[in-house]
Structure formats: C-alpha cells, structure tokens
Design a protein around this nucleic acid. Structure first.
Length: 506
DNA sequence: TGAAATGTTGGGGCG
DNA sequence: ACGCCCCAACATTTC
C-alpha cells in the first residue's frame, strides 16, 4: 500500500480528537461525480447530523481536467436530476461556483461542520487538492472522511505487493478477481437530514447560472439519445440490461446497429450508479441463470477495464499526454489539419468511420466497436497524433472519462499498457462487414448513403455507377471519395512504425 | 478486442 | 491411371 493509500484508507477510521458533537453544526457532503443515493458511502456517513449536500463548480485545472462540451451538458442533466432526487428525500442540492478547496473550507467554517465527507478521485491534481482540503479541515478540528464510491476496487487494492500496478490487463484482472468478494452495496437512505445554509457561507447559484448547456447554437438536441440522465434512469437501464440485454451481450456487443451494450457509461461517469451495484447485479443474474455466465464474465471484464484505467491514471498522472511506451515519444506524427477536420466531421469517405464520428457529434456517444475503428483510422490511416483524437473525444463524448479515454486511445495507438500492437491496423471495410453487416448503423448516421445496397454501402467507391445513380449519390459531391487509400495508408503506417523502431534501437 | 501474406492440404478437372 | 495444375479452405507467420 502506498503512503497516500494508507493515509486515505486510515482516514476512514480516524475520529478527530476534541470533537464537540453537541455543537449545532452540520455535516457536509462534498459531491463530485457521485450524483446518486444508492451505494453512496459518503452520504451514508453523513447521517448522524443534519447535512449540507454541496456541489462546487470549479472549472480550473487544479480541480481535475476541465470538462468538454458534451460532458458539461451531461453534468447539468445529472445535477438537475440529482437535485430532484434529493428533494424527494427531504434534502437539497446546494451549488457554489468557485475554487473548490477554498469554498469547502469556507463552508465548513461557516457551518461549524462536524465532518466533511466525499468520494475519492484518482487524478493526481484532484488527489492533491482533496489532500490539502483534508489537511486543512483536520487542522481546524473537522473530521474529513473520504470513501470509494467510484470503482469496484481502488488502485492500491489491486496493486502487487511492492505497490506497482500490473502492467497488463489480464494480470490486473486476475489479481482483482482473486480478492475477497466485493462488499455488498448499501441501499439508498429513505430520508436525509438537511441542515440550513449558513448565514456567512459562500453564495449559492442555480444550475442554469453555471452555463453548462449550450445556448447559441443549442446543439444539445440529440445528446444522450437513448439514455435518461440521472440515477433513476441508470437503475432502470441496469435492470433492463440484466433482464434482457445480458443474455446476448457476448454475442451482440460488437454489433453496431444493435443496442446490445449496457449504455451505462455516462451514468457511471457521473456516478449516477455505482460499479459495485452493477457488478453485484450482473453476478447475481449469472448465479441464478448459469447460461448467462459467459456474458456476465465478458461484461464484468469491461467494468474491470474501467478499474484498470483508473489504476493506470493513478500511477501515471500524464496518461492523457505521455505515451506509456517511451519509444512512441519519437513517433513522427503527421501535421494534417485537413485530415483531422475530415475525420472529426465524419467526412473521410469511409462510411463506418464517418457514421461513428457523426453519431458522436450529434449524440455525445459512439458505439464502442466504432470508437476503436474511428480511433484506429485517425492514428494509423492518417498518422495523426492520438492525443488530438483523445482531446476530440474528451470534448464530444458525454461519457468522457479522464482515465478510460486516454487509456483506450493509447491502447489503439499501441503506446499503452497491454495495448494492441501498432501493426494491428483495422480495415474499415472488413470491420464494417463484420459489425454492421446489413449497413443499418451506417445508414442511420450517414443518410446520404442510405439507399445503397448492403453490398456497396461500406465501400461506395467500388459501387457501379448504376448503383450510385440509383442511390442518388455523386461521389466527391454528395459523399466524399476516400481521403486516403486503405492499402497505401496501411503500408505507410507500417513503414513509419518501422522507422520509429529503427531509431529507438540505438 | 486484426489483417495480410505466406504456407499447406486436398479435391477435382484435365490431358 | 496418373501427374499436373488450379484453387478453395484452412493454418501459420508476419506486419
């Protein structure tokens, strides 16, 4: 266990000496990306006194990576829905805009707080900020407690005896699964005790005042299509996934037109559901119905990747900016704004890539299989730095996670932990034929190709002029011709990769 | 959580 | 009947 880990874990057992429990103060629940009541240890810990439930909006990088546009919109949804949920239990969500640490300390002072509780985070900057808040609170005799509410298991629980994280997912997952069963999730509190907002506390603002939602233009129309933000939506989605989705998960999760994934990613991102709640539900379903075992294993491993990403970010704070494999520091990425723009807008001329990028732009979501195909295309076909793609996803994905997003980009680039080798280059046509066999996904997001037959839809440049005419397509006009040739781009990528390896040998 | 190139095998057409 | 070629189908290796 690392020193930091010990400090955090130890904190839960400590009580501040000289605490006057009869004083009229409040408990403070400092909420950050844990907008739920179910399996919410921070809220559970604050029920011996009336409490304040506070979200501090702090856009500065000191508080963690500033949210991208789609995630900001999604955060507003989450806050709104959580405020209602609190209200239904007799409590209130208070929102303050300002520097997170100062705000919490000022509020603790004004409220004569007994204790301040929160859910832990795993980014270095956030850990530093939370640590300094914890120290200051304790200096003032306030109990500061933090909890795990975001991961099945925290990084140090899965670390090897020497504290180092497992370098490959499979090793990590083996260690993870060998640990004693996950603690049972705790149900939501029926009633919450609410403390009054203190006189001299920082000023509160409305959710609208945070300006999280785009106004002009309001591009949020289709965001979060197919999910209902908030804890209720999350629990309902989990229930229906376990009831009817899980059975076809292993077989259908890669089929892009099918809703065979859990669609819980954004709920998890904003803590509207706990991964332990999900894991326990999935395990219980498999225990009751052994036929689901394979699907459950597959799904739990995906949750495992989420823990793995957090563990890597914990160990490598620069996960989003530095390749884990040092040789990739010297990769000669191409400067190609035209190519990047075509990719971002879904105008590469490769239908499956364009479909994914347009689904992303319009809905803040992209099917996981297509994320891999689109990322591979940017990195390998266009040889554009994975960090540019990572940043684009960060800005446009409503579920963008500070650990998973960079991990997955590094995975595709071949520069990460347990990454796919660089030479594993996706062929967009083959991927599309496998995972969008009838073209339904592509038709939905690239409507100008909708009238092409399945035979032609994944490679319209190969279609006969007759077929193109019938479908009302003029290549280069109504839909782009491919911006790179697949075979040439593949050869180029392999050559550049060789070049990099040659240079790093000496 | 690939794809392409290369190697191997075996069936069938054919002289 | 036999060897030869072609090539699909599958396996292995290389990128």
């Amino acid at each position: 266990m690392s020193r930091l880990a010990r400090r955090i874990a130890g904190g839960e057992r400590e009580t501040a000496a000289g605490q006057d429990l009869s004083s009229p103060g409040a408990d403070i629940v400092w909420l950050r990306d844990d907008f739920r009541l179910d399996d919410q240890p921070a809220i559970d810990a604050a029920q011996s006194h009336p409490a304040l439930y506070v979200y501090v909006h702090d856009d500065s990088a000191r508080n963690g990576r500033p949210l991208g546009g789609a995630a900001r919109w999604r955060l507003a949804q989450s806050l709104q829905s959580f405020a209602k949920r609190l209200a239904a239990r007799g409590a209130r969500l208070d929102i303050v805009s300002g520097e997170a640490d100062r705000t919490i300390l000022a509020l603790a002072r004004a409220a004569k707080a007994h204790r301040v509780v929160w859910t832990r985070r795993y980014e270095a900057v956030s850990i530093a900020l939370d640590g300094s808040v914890k120290t200051s609170l304790r200096e003032h005799g306030v109990v500061a407690l933090s909890f795990n509410g975001r991961l099945m298991r925290e990084p140090w629980e899965v670390a090897k005896p020497d504290g180092a994280p497992s370098g490959s997912f499979s090793a990590f997952w083996r260690r993870h699964r060998a640990l004693p069963a996950l603690p049972a999730p705790s149900p939501a509190q029926d009633r919450l005790m609410q403390a009054p907002w203190p006189e001299d506390a920082p000023q509160r603002v409305t959710i609208e005042a945070l300006r999280l939602t785009p106004v002009k233009p309001d591009w949020s129309g289709e965001l979060a299509l197919g999910e209902t933000p908030g804890e209720e939506g999350a629990l309902a989605t989990l229930a229906s996934f376990v009831d009817s989705g899980l059975a076809s998960y292993a077989e259908g999760r890669d089929l892009t037109a099918r809703e065979a994934t859990s669609r819980l990613s954004a709920h998890l991102r904003f803590g509207e559901i706990s991964p332990r709640r999900i894991a326990v539900a999935v395990e219980a379903a498999a225990a009751a119905q052994p036929a689901l075992l394979g699907d459950a294993e597959k799904y739990l491993a995906e949750l495992g990747w989420r823990d793995f990403a957090a563990a890597l970010l914990y160990r490598h704070p620069n996960l989003a900016t530095r390749p884990l494999r040092a040789q990739f520091e010297r990769f000669p990425w191409r400067d190609d704004d035209t190519g990047f723009r075509a990719w971002a807008r879904g105008l590469t001329g490769y239908p499956i890539v364009d479909a994914g990028m347009r689904q992303l732009w319009r809905t803040g979501y992209m099917h996981n299989r297509v994320r891999m195909i689109a990322a591979s295309f940017l990195i390998k076909h266009l040889l554009i730095d994975w960090r540019r793609g990572e940043q684009w996803f960060w800005d446009t994905l409503a579920d963008a996670d500070p650990a998973s997003n960079p991990l997955n980009w590094q995975w595709v680039a071949g520069s990460g932990a347990d990454a796919a080798p660089f030479f594993r280059i996706f062929n967009p046509m083959l991927q599309a034929e496998k995972f969008d066999p009838d073209g339904a996904y592509t038709r939905r997001w690239v409507p100008e190709l909708a009238r092409l037959e399945a035979l032609d839809i994944h490679a319209p440049w190969r279609a006969s002029s007759d077929a193109l005419n019938r479908a009302g397509i003029v290549l280069g006009k109504t839909y782009p011709t491919p911006i790179v040739d697949h075979a040439q781009a593949r050869a180029r990528a392999l050559a550049v990769f060789d070049e990099m390896r040659g240079e790093t040998k000496d």
